[in-house]
């Protein structure tokens, strides 16, 4: 086994060159390059974590924004409904007022018309009296040859009509 046979003659060379080359590996790679690699990895990990946190924050902000928007929308809807209700109430009130004035005017017209009708009837009745008195005078003069004064005839007619 050369490892043992050559031990005495090669051990110093083996140890020396191992220390030289492992030293190079340790100081150049381990101490020189590795910290850069590690810091790159750490930096990347940190950046990813930061980005995730930022995304999470943005999501939370968006959620809050949406919530605020919903509240706002609900409020505005309620306001709109209140405006509509008020308008409806106003319209109903205006309609009532118009109806009231219209019915008052109609009532007035009807009352006036009834008054006119009553007057016309009274006038007509008066005329009927006159005609009846003249007719009674005429009948009495023709049948009995009596000449009855107009005032008497009129009184007689009135009495009959009143009893009528």
């Amino acid at each position: 086994m050369p490892q043992i046979e050559q031990l005495a003659t090669t051990y110093s060379s083996q140890v020396f060159w191992l220390l030289v080359f492992f030293g190079i590996v340790f100081f150049v790679i381990g101490r020189g390059m590795l910290p850069k690699v590690v810091s790159t990895m750490d930096g990347r990990d940190k950046q990813i974590a930061d980005d995730l946190a930022a995304a999470e924050a943005a999501r939370a902000a968006a959620d809050a924004e949406e919530e605020a928007w919903r509240v706002q929308a609900n409020k505005q809807r309620a306001e709109a409904q209140a405006v509509i209700a008020a308008a409806k109430a106003d319209a109903a009130k205006a309609t009532d007022a118009k109806l009231a004035t219209a019915s008052a005017r109609i009532d007035e017209t009807v009352t006036a018309a009834e008054a006119r009708i009553a007057a016309a009837r009274a006038a007509a009745l008066g005329e009927v009296e006159g005609v009846a008195a003249e007719a009674a005078q005429d009948i009495a003069s023709r049948l009995a040859g009596l000449s009855i004064p107009a005032a008497e005839a009129q009184a007689a007619v009135k009495g009959v009509l009143a009893n009528g």
């Binding site: 003659t9 090669t10 060379s13 191992l18």
Partner: peptide
């Protein structure tokens, strides 16, 4: 006094 010959072993370590 210690031999430090550059051997095939040293070469492969290099």
């Amino acid at each position: 006094g210690y031999n430090i010959a550059f051997t095939n072993s040293s070469l492969w370590m290099a």
